[in-house]
């Protein structure tokens, strides 16, 4: 077994959640790597959709932007951006949305807008993009984020996209019928919402990771499920396919 990085196991653990039946709304970065890893390994028939309008795309290298030509060249069809958000996302055609974020709280609400007051930002982040509506229209949401004290916040300065609000029942109270975040895959562990409270709870530790390590990288008191699994280590195929994908991507973007 070859060694692997925390980012690699995060991407691989996320890829394993996906199946041939999924219709995925894919974000750039770690989500894109995970979705394409799944497509190139155990889920060759997965449907990948990027918000630029590309339906059922099969890129050979990871796009740098959400609308690289590679996505359009390898798509079944490409629709306009209003159609993408109206018919496909709001229309309820997407089973799984993949999101990342700059900051997250214990109910999986995300902030990608601002650190500090909105009118006098300490750090201005890019903003929500597609996330506010992805978070409510996809059947369920997977979130990929590396852990850290500045990312896993006790209280978010701004809620860009809805997770489980202030706890169990928040989504329903807002008239949102989808499940919301069901998995948070990090570089150290996997969280899932507690069935009773919807608070993110550790359900799997990556190999060699301790509970103290997770708490040190989280801004709220972490809860652990009664039975915590160990994430199976990446196998040789998963690692080599992921590394080949990144190598092809790097070569393509430097050209």
């Amino acid at each position: 077994m070859s060694a692997y990085t925390p980012t690699e196991i995060m991407t691989i653990a996320a890829a394993r959640l996906l199946t041939n039946e999924d219709v995925c709304f894919v974000g750039i970065g770690a989500p894109s790597a995970a979705c394409n890893l799944a497509r190139l390994t155990h889920a060759p028939k997965i449907t990948l959709i990027y918000e630029s309008g590309t339906l059922s795309t099969r890129p050979s290298v990871l796009p740098l932007s959400i609308g690289d030509g590679e996505l359009c060249d390898t798509a079944l069809t490409t629709v306009s951006v209003p159609e993408m958000f109206r018919y496909w996302l709001q229309g309820g055609r997407i089973t799984t949305g993949f999101l990342g974020g700059a900051q997250i709280d214990r109910f999986a609400n995300l902030n990608t807008t601002v650190v500090g007051p909105y009118d006098q930002p300490k750090v201005r982040l890019p903003g929500g993009g597609g996330a506010p509506e992805i978070a409510i229209h996809c059947g369920q949401i997977f979130i990929i984020m590396a852990m850290g004290q500045r990312a896993f916040m006790d209280k978010l300065p701004f809620i860009t996209s809805l997770g489980h609000g202030t706890g169990k029942g928040s989504r329903e109270a807002l008239g949102v019928k989808t499940r919301g975040p069901t998995q948070l895959i990090t570089d150290l562990c996997v969280f899932e919402p507690d069935p009773e409270t919807s608070e993110l709870t550790v359900t799997a530790l990556h190999p060699g990771v301790t509970r103290d390590q997770i708490q040190e990288n989280c801004g709220w008191p972490v809860k652990f499920a009664a039975a915590v699994r160990e994430t199976p280590a990446p196998d040789a195929t998963e690692l080599s396919v992921l590394r080949d994908l990144h190598a092809r991507t790097k070569a393509a973007h430097a050209a």
């Binding site: 951006v81 209003p82 993408m84 958000f85 109206r86 709001q90 609400n109 807008t113 909105y118 929500g128 506010p132 509506e133 409510i136 229209h137 701004f158 809620i159 860009t160 996209s161 809805l162 609000g165 928040s170 989504r171 807002l174 008239g175 949102v176």
Partner: peptide, 23 residues
């Protein structure tokens, strides 16, 4: 996207299902 479409359609505003539970 909805706002551009409303503009093209000569409507004063766009209506959609969104912005729930956010700031």
């Amino acid at each position: 996207a909805n706002a551009f479409e409303a503009g093209a359609a000569n409507l004063p505003f766009a209506v959609f299902r969104g912005y729930k539970g956010v700031d």
